[in-house]
Design a protein around this nucleic acid. Structure first.
Length: 277
DNA sequence: ACGAGAACCTGTTTGC
DNA sequence: TGCAAACAGGTTCTCG
């Protein structure tokens, strides 16, 4: 489920709850996630204190007090669920890993489809790590603008929809927010990526930043209650302009038959054919 | 070299 | 109602 805004929200929630806490135990119930959980992870984690939690692309980074970094990715179905003495939760199917902290606080990684992963790196090698080496820029980073986006897209003959899903081009966008950003910028998802430049690229960069920023705000405001209610991190309600709205009227023009759904590179795309060119 | 498509998994929704 | 097919927010490998 999680794209950049959800992962950012989860990382902030973890930061608030775990910073300064010592990790006492790590239990792995199954090793075969998207890729095997590295052997020896338990020894690298137990006894360490959490210094900070951050995000890169759709990866959660837990920075430890010895320079180690726990890397977590939630794939499509991954969730992080807290359980503690005040709000205990029963163990559930697909709880693949359990992190035990001081004070009886447990954080559980639950992931039915097992497209998520756990990995480990050191602070000094982080940027060169296999998972991060090829990632494009952060769309909310200070250098991300129309000029940079034009350069990233230059010469690409794939549809802009597919290009924006490619983490080597921009890091953190997923299927929902690509549709939303293209709608916001008034750009057809079928347009060839290489033709998005100049003023059009500027509009797209702005729309990407806008859509992500608003989603993070929505997540941040709903996170507190949601965590208290259920102990889960990572799911919250959004209102989307086009995603999942096939057949509904475009919010901006009352065109018929409204929002269209097409399949590109095996994934659903939603857009308004009148507004997006 | 590049882009489209399949593959990896399980759970839920849709359609006959 | 029951069953099978389609579909799901990600990433990575293979094939043409």
């Amino acid at each position: 489920m999680p794209e950049l805004p959800e992962v950012e929200t989860v990382a902030r929630g973890l930061q608030a709850r775990l910073q300064g806490k010592r990790l006492l135990s790590f239990t792995l119930n199954r090793r075969d996630l998207r890729k095997p959980v590295p052997p020896g992870l338990k020894n690298k984690l137990e006894g360490r204190r959490v210094e900070a939690v951050s995000r890169r692309a759709k990866y959660i980074l837990v920075h430890l007090d010895d320079g180690g970094v726990l890397i977590a990715h939630l794939g499509m179905s991954g969730r992080l669920v807290f359980s503690d003495p005040q709000h205990p939760r029963p163990a559930e199917p697909h709880d693949h890993a359990v992190f035990g902290f001081e004070g009886g606080v447990e954080l559980r990684l639950n992931d039915a489809r097992r497209f998520g992963l756990l990995d480990y790196a050191t602070e000094s090698n982080l940027a060169a790590h296999k998972l991060f080496r090829h990632l494009g820029p952060e769309p909310l980073g200070p250098e991300f603008d129309g000029d940079l986006l034009s350069k990233l897209l230059k010469g690409k003959k794939t549809p802009i929809k597919a290009a924006l899903l490619d983490q080597r081009v921009v890091a953190g966008l997923g299927n929902i927010y690509v549709s939303e950003a293209l709608y916001g910028a008034g750009i057809s998802p079928r347009r060839l990526a290489g033709t998005v430049k100049g003023e059009r690229a500027g509009r797209l960069a702005s729309a990407i930043r806008d859509v992500l920023t608003r989603a993070i705000s929505a997540g941040g405001s709903s996170l507190r209650d949601y965590v208290q209610a259920s102990g889960e991190l990572g799911y919250f309600q959004h209102h989307w302009a086009v995603y999942g709205k096939e057949g509904e009227p475009c919010p901006d023009c009352d065109c018929r038959p409204g929002i269209k759904r097409i399949v590109q590179a095996g994934r659903s795309t939603f857009y308004c054919a009148k507004r997006q060119r």
